[in-house]
């Protein structure tokens, strides 16, 4: 398919998130859904966020749009898009960012589209919300064509239930890309789809990325999918980024025990599995009662005593790489 994203040469940071905290008050206490996350995406780049369900990756995505469902809220941090701090914007200004500068597509295309509105209307209203567009209907036909909906002139008048799951996700992509955003957030875009359709959707996202230079933040629990699509990967665990780095390096030489465990849980065709697939023992911690030390402590194979009591900072482990693990601190001895 399309080669390297065309705009990766531009080194300017498009999205810059610094020390972001998202909290959800619950009966059990304050849930730290996103815990001091720092990440950046360059213009045109494809970045992946990997983590199991409940790791806070969807909350992170929604917080960029400032759509964290109540009573959750962004407690502190900075989210800047092309140099503008989004958290300082008024709700009205933020509306101009949503769907215009940042597009978003969601996990389940069968519930993400309004069942009683025509597909074309749902694309067109995205355009109309941001541009005085008399020809928004024609533009939505063009958008449907660009996401390879067959016979868009006619099918633009259909309702979502008349589309297949894969076509609905194409429509979601058309909506997300309708205003040529600088960034497209794809939150588990293929999880609800069957495997052959998954590949088509990822190909479509890749060509969108290459043709329009829109940066993509791909959020998935599917580490294989992310490794094929993204040039850089962040691994999220219990609301924190535990490891970050260029895809190839991170997957060949994972520094964090959680990343290693994730990778060894992956079925590989070139590897014999005498004792079946490896699983990660235990469960993710209760985000309302995070331990004082490392959040992965209970499940970690390589833990040392420091991990119990002290929360590891992000150690730099090479150019563009970091890991939140005491063992990654080259100054400390590993046991």
């Amino acid at each position: 398919m399309a080669g390297e994203p065309t705009m990766t040469k531009i080194q300017s940071q498009l999205l810059d998130i610094a020390d972001l905290h998202v909290e959800i008050p619950t009966a059990r206490g304050m849930v730290k859904a996103v815990d001091s996350v720092t990440l950046s995406v360059r213009a045109g780049e494809a970045v992946g966020i990997v983590g199991e369900s409940g790791s806070g990756k969807s909350m992170l995505a929604l917080s960029i749009m400032q759509l964290v469902p109540r009573p959750g809220r962004i407690a502190s941090g900075r989210i800047s898009l092309a140099g503008r701090d989004l958290l300082q914007l008024s709700e009205r200004e933020m509306r101009q960012v949503r769907g215009n500068e940042v597009g978003m597509i969601f996990q389940d295309p069968s519930t993400s589209l309004n069942p009683v509105l025509r597909v074309g209307r749902q694309v067109a209203e995205t355009i109309e919300a941001h541009h005085p567009a008399a020809d928004s209907w024609q533009q939505s036909v063009d958008m449907l064509r660009s996401v390879s909906i067959p016979d868009p002139q006619r099918r633009v008048r259909d309702y979502p239930h008349q589309y297949s799951g894969g076509m609905r996700q194409r429509v979601m992509i058309a909506i997300g890309m309708a205003n040529r955003p600088k960034l497209l957030i794809a939150d588990e875009p293929t999880t609800a789809l069957d495997v052959t359709v998954q590949a088509q959707i990822m190909d479509l996202l890749r060509s969108m990325n290459a043709e329009t230079g829109t940066a993509i933040l791909l959020i998935s629990h599917n580490i294989a999918l992310v490794s094929r699509f993204c040039s850089r990967v962040l691994v999220m665990y219990a609301g924190r980024i535990v490891e970050e780095g260029p895809t190839a390096e991170l997957f060949h030489q994972p520094k964090h025990p959680y990343t290693r465990a994730l990778l060894s849980a992956l079925p590989r065709i070139d590897r014999k599995l005498p004792q079946g697939l490896t699983t990660i023992g235990g469960r993710p911690p209760d985000l309302a009662r995070l331990p004082a030390g490392c959040a992965f402590f209970d499940r970690c194979q390589d833990r040392i005593e420091t991990c119990r009591t002290e929360r590891p900072p992000a150690f730099s482990v090479g150019p563009g790489r970091s890991a939140r693990c005491w063992l990654a601190d080259e100054g400390k001895p590993s046991c």
Partner: peptide, 17 residues
């Protein structure tokens, strides 16, 4: 609370719409 309302918000539509 349905998903497509979240989609509508993510489009940047006005609350009244």
């Amino acid at each position: 609370n349905l998903d497509f309302i979240r989609t509508a918000r993510a489009k940047g539509l006005r609350p009244m719409t």
